[in-house]
Each structure stands twice: as structure tokens, then as C-alpha cells.
Design a protein around this nucleic acid. Structure first.
Ligand code: MN
Ligand code: MN
Ligand code: ZN
Ligand code: ZN
Lengths: 142, 142
DNA sequence: TAGCTAGTTGCGAATGGTTCTCATTTGCAT
DNA sequence: ATGCAAATGAGAACCATTCGCAACTAGCTA
């Protein structure tokens, strides 16, 4: 995939500019993150990254994810009683719907809700910095 | 507080009907929960409960909270990197705004957002079972 | 290209909130 | 009062994530 390659180089650039070194291990993790279409957790990312570079340790996966999160390149999600899951922050903001039976994660975005949230915060004398909206659902039958 | 006493007895009734025994320790925890105006975590509840009954252990606090949660009497919240916090489920549904500087938790409710959530789930072919909406904010200056 | 050095790594130990185990106690129906 | 399943306290176990440290290395410098 051509896009993935570009994205990885872009990510590497962001890291280097932030004074973060691009190691063999990090390159592998970035590639895995860039081509992920889902919301993998640390150990799943570890499993995938090892196929590119078998020396990647789980510690490094965690450390790299934290670094990337701090650079604003990766987002961490803590869904209901589950381990943290990650995704690159390149797509525009969205929230998640979780299928409570299969665990599937579906993305959605509602500009109305986004706006209402800001209004609510403002009414209470606050400035909205970030938020978390998760819909836990069951597939509708019939 | 007269209301608190009634509420406690009501809670005890709910437990007994659910086949859950009302022990000395649970009575203490129920009282603490009923009079709590905030969103305490397990160890804070433990601290408070010990003032009523010094024998209450942290294990029992956790066990009782789980039992109460299963009875639908207590709600557990897992705010951003923090320990679980609890509140009685007697008040009508609401969501939370968290002051990221002080940690203060403010309750709010938006019927519009509630409705939009259900609509989004429906559009995606799902039935909304429960959700989590948290606004992480900073107090507006000036 | 070789050297330097601060950032990074793998490993294993530590952390910390929460749950579990188990011997002992206790609520409460009869 | 009695009997027994449910609940308790203490501490061990759990487990995702973070730390500590000695060895390694990315990437700048000469
Ligand atoms: Mn997503
Ligand atoms: Mn609340
Ligand atoms: Zn959103
Ligand atoms: Zn709500």
C-alpha cells in the first residue's frame, strides 16, 4: 500500500522533529499502526510488530505508544473493562459505538453532539478540552 | 438527615429482596453511599465507612459495591486514568463534566444528546444499551 | 568514516487497583 | 435456639502497565 508508506514517513518526520529517535523497533510499530484498520491493543500491536522486527518487546510497544500519544499522533481509548486500544490520530475526530456482544468497534461522528457538548461546557463556565463518548449497543434484531 | 435514613432502609429492602444479606458492614456502606454528595472511590468509601463500623474491610467495600452494582442500585464510573468512582443510581440519568485541573465532577443532562445517541445507534443498525459521555474541561478564565 | 553521547532497548521486577481464596463468622429462615 | 448458605477479614493473586538498569545504537560532529 503506497499510502501507508507515505504515512509512515510522515510519522517518522513528526517524531524526529519532536526530538524522538526513529529506531528499528519504532519504525515497525509505526508501520503496523499506519496500516491498522481496527483498534488494536498493546499486545495485538506487539504481535503484529514482531512479524516485521522480531526483537520488538512489549515494553517498547508501550513506550512508543506513550511517546506517540504525547506527540498527538496516536490516540488511546479505554473502553469499558478492556485493555487500552490505540489508533492513529490522522482521521478527523470521531466517537465509537461498541457492540457489546462481539466487541466490534464502529466509528461515527455527530456534529450536533459535538456542538451540544461545547455548549453545555460553556453554560457551566467551562471550556471543553476533550471528551469521551462511547455507545455500548446490541445489534438490532429483525 | 431524615431522607438518608429512608433511603438506606429502601436500599436494604432492595438487597434483601435480591437475596442479599444486610450485614453490619453493608449497612455502614449503604449509609455512606446514601449520604454521599460526591463520587467517591472505593478507598474513600472505606475511609468513611470505617467511622461507622471500624471492622469494614476494603475487600468488603469492593464486594458490596459489586453486589449493589449488579442490583442496579449503584453505578460505577471509570473516569480518565483514575480509580473507579461510585454513586447511588437513584437520581435520574446524567453524564459528567470533569474539571481537569481540580478533578471536580459536575453532573449534567442533555435530552438532545440522549436522543441523538439513540438515533445514531439506530441508524447503524443497533439498539443503544448504555453509554458513557464525559467532558474533560478547564474552567473558563475571565 | 569513526567517535561520541544521550536516547532507546530488552529484560525482569515493581506497581497498584481490584479480585480471589479460605478459614471463620454471621444473618436469618425455620 | 439451630443450621447452613452467605458474608467477612486478611492477605495472596491478578494483570495491564510502568520502571530500573546495564547494554545498545541513532544520528550528530569532526
Ligand atoms: Mn476510532
Ligand atoms: Mn453522577
Ligand atoms: Zn466526539
Ligand atoms: Zn447520558
Amino acid at each position: 500500500m503506497r499510502q501507508t508508506k507515505n504515512r509512515v514517513q510522515e510519522l517518522e518526520g513528526i517524531l524526529r522533529e519532536g526530538g524522538v529517535r526513529v529506531t528499528r523497533q519504532r519504525a515497525a510499530i509505526l508501520k503496523i499502526l499506519a496500516e491498522a484498520e481496527d483498534h488494536p491493543d498493546a499486545s495485538e500491536l506487539h504481535r503484529r510488530a514482531k512479524e516485521i522486527d522480531a526483537t520488538v518487546s512489549l515494553s517498547t510497544v508501550y513506550r512508543t505508544l506513550s511517546a506517540l500519544e504525547q506527540q498527538g499522533v496516536v490516540q488511546r481509548h479505554a473502553f469499558e473493562n478492556a485493555t487500552a486500544r490505540f489508533e492513529t490520530a490522522d482521521a478527523p475526530h470521531h466517537d465509537h459505538l461498541i457492540d457489546i456482544e462481539t466487541g466490534a468497534v464502529i466509528e461515527f461522528r455527530s456534529d450536533k453532539i459535538e456542538q451540544l457538548q461545547a455548549e453545555i461546557a460553556a453554560e457551566l463556565g467551562y471550556e471543553l478540552v476533550r471528551h469521551r463518548l462511547e455507545l455500548y449497543c446490541r445489534k438490532r434484531k429483525d
